[in-house]
Amino acid sequence: MIRTAGLTKRVPTSEGELTILNDVSLRIEAGESVAIVGASGSGKSTLLGLMAGLDTATSGEIWLDGRQLSTMDEEQRALLRAEAVGFVFQTFQLLPSLTALENAMLPIELKGESGAGGKARKLLDRVGLGDRWHHYPNQLSGGEQQRVAIARAFATKARVLFADEPTGNLDTATGGKVIDVLFELNREFDTTLVLVTHEERLARKCGRSIRLVAGEIANGESRPEPVHA
């Protein structure tokens, strides 16, 4: 489902070029759940952004859902995201002017599918917010907001779900409940899950972990990949 080969990301700084990711090669199969772990600043979120097509690499190649991202422009990557990718972020990223229901409806509407309201209501029911659908983000707790984000992520039946520190802004108990919902839906929709976290406990819930240290894979995952799709 996802493959990277020799992925490198460098950014210019006032003190010269800074390497954030260095020669990262990995492979994630369809239906797998993979945790990307590592200390702060190890390059976890950058790797997630690159694999999801939110950013472009300095060098190396990425394949997502059978397509090579590095040859696509932002428009093509956006269309691929619309079709195949879902996101859950640490800071929830809900639109503050939309209600819970409207937030969950948004990707369905953007995709041009009909029955957005019904589908979104079902998902909100599924994440336990059936009675809170008309509330705005600022009227919901952190855990509730993250559950709306999860409902939104599954609204278009994404084939790959990228989760960036989904419990990072939540207390342990709330975080636990949110993760349970996330994994339940993941199983139900048979989604490939890529989860960035620094929590070992959360990482253990995934099928396997990829550890990043200073922008490089530290646990032997960084093996050469074939360059054909």
């Binding site: 999801a52 939110l54 932002e74 428009e75 956006a78 269309l79 691929l80 995201r81 619309a82 079709e83 990718v85 996101f87 990223q93 809900l94 639109l95 948004l106 990707p107 953007l110 995709k111 939104r152 278009t156």
Partner: peptide
Amino acid sequence: YDYVAILKTLGCTSAR
């Protein structure tokens, strides 16, 4: 800005 960034992660193209 954030609004658009979210729309883009949800698959909205620049043209749209």
